[in-house]
Design a protein around this nucleic acid. Structure first.
Length: 479
RNA sequence: CGGGGUGUGGCGAAGCUUGGUAUCGCGCUUGGUUCGGGACCAAGAGGCCCCGGGUUCGAAUCCCGGCACUCCGACCA
């Protein structure tokens, strides 16, 4: 009987079916629910709490660097969207349109924003006149809509939450520095807060954002060795400024076009967290982002004094600044252990009559299930230490996955072999030609992930065509 | 968008071939006993059988058309 129950509740093993494992975790850990419209998902409290913590961390970092939050409309007139030709070519196929207001057909249809470059440009044209108005460092938290053909929880929604930074600068140098700086903010956030190691680099022309001069990216490796583009930062030069007629008078009293950037990170990163750290028992949350860092579980809670002692422990940890909860529901302890493991709570503390007698508690780590007996006097410091240790352990494990599954290859055949055998990333030298990039996709089934900032010299010739190589580049299968 | 799979109380499934008004496990409610790895007993509640048409005296079941989820591919600015 107990066996049956376990099977019903169980999450599909990731070795059996990684995709099923992923959706099981999303739904069973109560992060997400499906809605009646394809590709539009409900973020449940636990999933939204994750996003709120992500927002809090990033927002603080943005503001430290002088960025300000704004909110622009969600509808874009078609004519506005069409002002920059590369941009519209990229986005128009995925736009959803508002064609009616009430029963009246609109004169001009309105696109539900797939991204807000055009809206920001329209606004910037109105408010930027002098070099004194620059830089403009704006950020927006909002949702955008892209009519994707297939959708998956967090990884590909038609409507998703994100932040989009849009900045304007007097010089190209300044704008490029901003682009790089914001990518580094994302990279640092992934590594220090989400325990996700990243590869920083530049996208090829083929993979860059419509209308951008350069697209910078951070690429993460998931547990199934596929790549997830986890954040991007674009340098636009003055292309949009010209298209939207944004000009300012510079210090020499000359008319000039400002240089622009945009950068974004979305709820997709939650999918990244799940697929980087999760295991067959469910979610494993990095401590610094976990909505609940510690779950206190009273054992034999009906017995005199147990609940009170457990709640006192919870209160102490809360005072110490830990995000802590107590589960005093009428479930058995074993049920609670399994439940909170599935939801990825980094630490649980068991407190029962025996512990109270011995003035101790039992702390169990989610990541390795280690049980630690801790004197009640030392709980605060021990919890703080353990949370940091878990973060480091998660990071190291993810880094090992990244390193162990990144292969230096010298020929297309070798890439093909490696990718078929093991998946992961291949790094090769590359001549820079689109033809070689297309051939790699065609023959080895991988797309270019990025040209890393941190270059390695793997040889002198392109692994695909044999001509002189310009750069070392990463390849992989991407989400 | 192409190919496959699925859709039955909250969840997982059986029933469909061969039409007769729905079954099981889990969960849920109430009461009681339990409580250190998904406890047990008893009594209950809960179903537009994905949606819309059609065939039929009668459809979860047969036929047609949608929709959603899912996997594989293409696409993903």
């Amino acid at each position: 009987m107990a066996q049956d129950k376990k099977q019903v509740e169980q999450i599909t093993d990731m070795e059996t079916d990684f995709a099923k494992w992923y959706t099981d975790v999303c739904t069973k850990a109560e992060l997400i629910d499906y809605s009646s419209v394809k590709g539009l998902f409900i973020l449940r409290p636990y999933g939204y709490a994750l996003w709120e913590n992500i927002q809090k961390e990033l927002d603080a970092r943005f503001k430290e660097d002088g960025h300000e939050n704004v909110y622009l409309p969600m509808l874009i007139p078609e004519s506005l969207l069409q002002k920059e030709k590369d941009h519209v070519k990229g986005f128009a196929p995925e736009c959803a349109w508002v064609t009616h207001g009430g029963n009246e057909k609109l004169e001009e249809r309105l696109c539900i924003r797939p991204t807000s470059e055009t809206l920001f440009c329209e606004h910037y044209a109105n408010i930027i006149h002098s070099w004194r108005d620059l830089p403009k460092l704006y950020n927006q938290w909002c949702s955008v809509l892209r009519w994707e053909k297939t959708s998956r929880p967090f990884l590909r929604h038609r409507e998703f939450l994100w932040q989009e930074g849009h900045t304007m600068h007097a010089t190209a140098e300044e704008a490029i520095a901003e682009t790089r700086q914001q990518l580094e903010v994302y990279a640092d956030f992934c590594e220090k807060i989400l325990a996700m190691p990243v590869v920083r680099g530049v996208k090829t022309d083929k993979e860059k954002f419509s209308g951008a001069e350069d697209t910078y990216t951070i690429e993460c490796m998931m547990h199934d060795r596929k790549a997830l583009q986890s954040g991007t930062s674009h340098y636009f030069g003055d292309g949009f400024a010209r298209a939207f007629d944004i000009t300012f008078t510079d210090k020499e009293n000359k008319q000039a076009y400002p240089h622009q950037t945009s950068w974004g990170l979305s709820t997709r990163i939650i999918g990244g967290i799940i697929m980087t750290h999760g295991d067959n028992s469910g979610l494993v949350l990095p401590p610094r982002i976990a909505p609940t860092q510690v779950m206190v579980i009273p054992v034999a809670q009906h017995k005199e004094g147990v609940l009170e002692a457990a709640d006192a422990l919870r209160a102490r940890l809360a005072v110490a600044g830990v995000r802590v909860k107590m589960d005093s529901s009428e479930q058995s302890p074993g049920w609670k252990f399994a439940e909170h493991e599935m939801k990825g709570v980094p630490l649980r503390i068991e407190l029962g009559p025996k512990d109270i007698e011995n003035k101790q508690c039992v702390i169990v780590r989610r990541d390795n299930r280690e049980k630690i007996f801790v004197s009640l006097d030392e709980v605060e410091t021990k919890v703080a230490t353990l949370l940091n240790e878990i973060h480091d352990a998660l990071y190291d494990k993810a880094l090992k996955n990244l390193n162990d599954n990144t292969y230096a290859c010298t020929s297309l055949e070798e890439v093909k072999e490696k990718m078929e055998a093991c998946g992961g990333f291949a790094k090769t030298m590359w001549c820079g030609d689109l033809q070689c990039e297309l051939r790699m996709k065609e023959e080895a089934g991988v797309s270019s992930r990025c040209i890393p900032f941190q270059q390695e010299h793997l040889g002198d010739t392109c692994a695909i065509c044999g001509k002189p190589a310009k750069k070392m580049i990463y390849w992989g299968v991407a989400y």
